[in-house]
Design a protein around this nucleic acid. Structure first.
Length: 952
DNA sequence: GTAGGGTTAG
């Protein structure tokens, strides 16, 4: 019996190093049986997957017997398999070393193949290759192990190369070769090789092997050839293998067909096949949208029910699913309960925070990760850098950049692209440039990010230059890149560039809906209403964004009337407005002071249960204020529980435009109490409020507060408010000194404020200086020419007036005609000067004559023709004053509204001095409150006085 | 005596 055993063992192993022992046969025999028993027990331990015990057993018995008395192939083999399974490369390397030193068997193709396999599984394909190259007699197992090593380590091309080499040597693949090499074809999306190898598999008779068929289904799914994949799946006779189901379910999931994936899951379960971790992950992938969260939760429940232990892959997929559905709370709960977390778990949470725009939380989590000793890897850095960019945290972003350099991650393309984005979002163009230039192989994303970065940082020309470079280099251009290029065109306000790009995309066939909407939007931004509306008309499939873009285009270009009409059209077309469109149309209603329209929209919001939070509340506050009903603004404002900075700012601004400076200050102080930190815009609203209420000391104090306490560098607009304040108090010299002492160069708005004050206080000398500066700094704004020519006219300098008008004409600029709106009934009525287009025109002029007569006889009104800023006869001047658009609107208001109701009108330019006197008197003698919004502010006329205190 | 197909983060 013992002899037979010895015989069988020695025939199994013909190794040159087989120990030639001097000991007696009986001793030899007992040693051998002990060896056999230990090997058997080791194999058993390995089978159970306990690496620690297996290793202990191996080292304690075999390791210190050098050279080992008997061949250890079986022991090596089973422990190497276990190392491969557990991806335990360190232990694998120890075994490798042991094999080398034991000097027993290394030329065995069998163990070498095992080592190749182990290194492949442990993610060390190069180690595997080194061994593979040294093996002189390769079996099909050896080839398979090496091909597999390449495939499972993301080197499908080398796998295919090796396969071809093998075929050239005349080696015939076996069944196990096919799944591997088919996966390589799938990874390469190499349709031709895939089909060829599919053919060979059939020829070899392996086509219907379950393993092979599963790989084929997966491959065709990867090729997006769903017909073929489904055909192969449906043709499988036995559908009891869960892997087959997993292949097809995952394929549908990955292809954005979640419902089909879930339908197949149900079908599988009905067939009595129960799901495993792969199935769970596959279907969880399908639930990547908040609308599918219910299904996701069902799967979560099913997974919990099927086993007590949550597999890492399953848990990670759950984290990802909840994150994608916007439920970070649930994602965190799964994460916190995980027994075993890997880097994917941490990174999935981190990216979840980023995807859900919780950047602060992402940063906090990143710190937690480091404190726990979890080392950030490439993916972590990509996520955190992206979050820091969005937070504008330049300093922390640079720290991460340093970390990436230190860990050799900075040469990675994705890291480079993310860094470009981060520096761009932190407005750090020079660093952005440096990172961009240092990316060796820039891809489409690198270029797009850089172009977007330039455009967002207002380096429009540089953005266009980069786009030129892209074209010259023949780099691929996609819709996203064009989007950023168009942003640059929009920033330049250059329609001709937009038209060029428009043609470019038409030629290239890049015109998707998003891009069409951007083109429309950009035409609007450039003020080219004609092209915008033509674009809008030509669009076949308009979505809410298209409609909103067109509406905003009208609003921004002073065509609020058209905007309101289009909004109604949109509703009639069954398009349901969203937040953005509502905010935009509210601004349109506000521009026209169309209170009734505004209220209508407000009513719509209430009926539709739109939550009045965020930008919607602010837009309503603004709309009511600009429509003259600041009380309604207050109502909205007071109703919102958690007020954000924008809401407070809107309310402060509302008070400002109504000359309620003290109230604005009160709000500002209350806001500080609520622990909100004011920004530039808040201070602008506050200073604006101070200036319109003549609160000089307060204005000065808040400008200082802004600089010193909040470390905010004032914009020219902030300085302009102070200039306005000083000017209003007729402290013009002080105002001029202030302008000269500004730490930044005064811009057009500052000179404009000074010029306005000079006009009111007839300071000709300073007025001339300001006028020249204004035209020098902003020569393309027709409003400035009008203002300057009016100042010269009021000085009686008609020659200068003519010169300014000539210059304006030479620039091809046209003055905006004066226009006044009034909402009567459900309609906004517009009047221009000496307008005779209104259907009730006769009545209106009759009323106006009557009004003037009463004011002359009872109020002693005498028209002051110095406000007619044209060099014409006196009589003509009187006629002109008489026909000013605001008077026509007031007359119409008196006819069209019942006694005692306030008259609200809106004018696109500043009200003239004579009309101001006239309106004050109307408010007194006709006992009407008149609320007028002009280009600059609100005037509340009541009982013969105006809230502006005669300064505007 | 080996192996082979289906999953997670960007």
């Amino acid at each position: 019996m013992a002899k037979a055993l010895l015989h069988s063992y020695s025939s199994l192993a013909t190794y040159p190093t087989f120990p030639k022992t001097q000991k007696s046969p009986s001793l030899q025999l007992s040693k051998l049986s002990e060896h056999r028993a230990t090997t058997t027990s080791l194999k058993e331990i390995c089978k159970n997957g306990d690496l620690k015990r297996a290793f202990l057993s191996f080292t304690s018995f075999f390791a210190n017997q050098s050279p080992p008395p008997f061949p250890l192939d079986e022991a090596y083999s089973s422990i190497l398999d276990l190392c491969a399974l557990k991806k335990a490369i360190e232990q694998g390397q120890q075994i490798h070393a042991h094999i080398l030193t034991s000097n027993c068997a290394f030329d065995s193709a069998f163990l070498s193949t095992k080592l190749v396999f182990m290194y492949g599984k442990c993610g060390a394909p190069m180690e595997a290759q080194k061994l593979f190259d040294q093996i002189p007699h390769r079996t099909i197992f050896t080839w398979n192990a090496m091909i597999g090593a390449y495939v499972s380590n993301g080197k499908p091309y080398r796998a295919l190369q090796l396969y071809r080499e093998m075929r050239m040597l005349g080696v015939t693949p076996d069944a196990c070769t096919f799944p591997c090499i088919l996966k390589a074809c799938a990874g390469l999306i190499d349709l031709q090789s895939g089909a060829e190898i599919h053919g060979l598999a059939i020829k070899c008779g392996f086509g219907s092997f379950l393993f092979v068929a599963n790989a084929l289904v997966a491959m065709y799914a990867k090729f997006n050839d769903f017909n073929r994949a489904r055909q192969l799946f449906d043709r499988m006779v036995v559908k009891e293998d869960v892997v087959s189901w997993n292949s097809i379910i995952s394929a549908y999931s990955a292809n954005g067909q979640p419902l089909e994936a879930l339908r197949l899951l149900r079908e599988m379960q009905k067939g009595g096949v129960s799901m495993n971790s792969y199935t769970a992950v596959g279907v969880l992938q399908a639930c990547d949208d908040p609308s599918l969260i219910k299904l996701g939760m069902e799967i979560h429940a099913a997974v919990l029910k099927s086993s007590l232990y949550l597999h890492v892959y399953e848990a990670n997929a759950l984290v990802v699913m909840y994150a994608r559905c916007g439920r970070m709370d649930k994602a965190a709960r799964v994460f916190n309960k995980m027994d075993e977390k890997d880097n994917v778990s941490w990174n999935s949470m981190l990216s979840g925070f980023v995807q859900n725009e919780l950047y602060d939380k992402a940063v906090g989590f990143f710190h937690e990760m480091q404190e726990t000793g979890q080392k950030p890897d490439l993916v972590s850095i990509i996520n955190i850098v992206s979050a820091l960019g969005r937070l504008g945290s330049l300093f922390n972003g640079m720290e991460c950049h340093a970390y990436a350099i230190k860990h050799g991650l900075h040469s990675d393309l994705q890291i480079g692209n993310t860094l470009v984005d981060m520096y761009s979002k932190c407005s750090c163009v020079s660093y952005m440039e440096r990172v961009f230039y240092n990316i060796p192989d820039k891809d489409l994303i690198s270029w797009t990010t850089a172009i977007a970065g330039y455009a967002q940082n207002k380096c429009y020309l540089e953005a266009l230059r980069k786009f030129q470079e892209v074209q010259m280099k023949g780099i691929k251009v996609d819709e996203l890149m064009i989007g950023s290029v168009l942003l640059a065109c929009s920033g330049l306000r250059c329609t001709s560039h937009v038209k060029q790009i428009h043609c470019y995309i038409m030629r290239r066939g890049l015109f998707d809906l998003v891009l069409q909407n951007i083109v429309l939007d950009v035409y609007g931004d450039c003020g080219d209403i004609e092209y915008a509306s033509r674009m809008f008309e030509e669009m076949k499939d308009k979505d809410i964004v298209s409609w909103t873009s067109m509406i905003s285009c009208y609003v921004h270009n002073g065509l609020a009337d058209e905007a309101l009409d289009l909004f109604s059209d949109m509703m009639h077309n069954g398009i349901v407005p969203d937040m953005v469109s509502i905010v935009s149309i509210l601004s349109g209603a506000a521009n026209l002071s169309a209170l009734r329209k505004g209220k209508e929209i407000h009513g719509f919001l209430t009926r539709r249960d739109f939550g009045l939070d965020g930008s919607l509340a602010s837009a309503l506050v603004d709309m009511y204020a600009r429509c003259g009903t600041i009380d309604s603004s207050y109502k909205i404002f007071n109703r919102i529980r958690s007020k954000d900075l924008i809401l407070w700012t809107s309310m402060i601004n509302a008070c400002g435009m109504h000359g309620r400076g003290k109230e604005a200050i009160g709000l500002f102080e209350a806001m500080k109490e609520a622990n909100l930190i004011p920004d530039h815009v808040t201070f602008l609203a506050l200073l604006y409020a101070c200036s319109h209420s003549g609160l000089i000391d307060e204005g000065r104090r808040y400008l200082e507060l802004m600089k010193n306490e909040y470390q905010l560098e004032p914009w020219p607009e902030h300085y302009a408010c102070l200039v306005d304040l000083l000017g209003r108090a007729n402290r013009l010299d002080e105002a001029y000194k202030f302008v000269k002492s500004m730490p930044i160069a005064p811009t057009a708005v500052v000179w404009c404020a000074l010029l306005g004050a000079c006009r009111v206080h007839s300071n000709n000398e300073l007025g001339e200086i300001a006028a020249h500066k204004l035209l020098e700094l902003d020569p393309e704004n027709p409003g400035n020419y009008v203002l300057v020519s009016n100042v010269f006219a009021s000085m009686g300098k008609w020659k200068d007036v003519d010169e300014v008008r000539m210059r304006m004409k030479g620039m091809g600029l046209k003055k905006n005609p004066a226009c006044t709106w009034i909402e009567v009934g459900n309609k906004v009525h517009a009047f221009t000067a000496r307008d005779r287009c209104h259907p009730q025109t006769q009545e209106i002029y009759l009323k106006l004559d009557q009004m003037t007569e009463i004011l002359e006889s009872e109020g002693g009104y005498v028209a002051d023709t110095k406000f007619v800023l044209q060099n014409v006869q006196e009589e003509e001047k009187l006629k002109m004053l008489h026909g000013h658009s605001e008077r026509l609107a007031i007359a119409f208001g008196l006819i069209g509204t019942s006694e005692g109701t306030p008259i609200r009108i809106t004018k696109n330019l500043r009200i003239c001095g004579d009309c101001h006197v006239f309106t004050k008197m109307v408010s007194k003698f006709f006992k009407r409150e008149i609320i007028m919004r002009d280009a600059n502010r609100f005037h509340h006329f009541n009982g013969g006085v105006c809230s502006c205190g005669d300064f505007w």
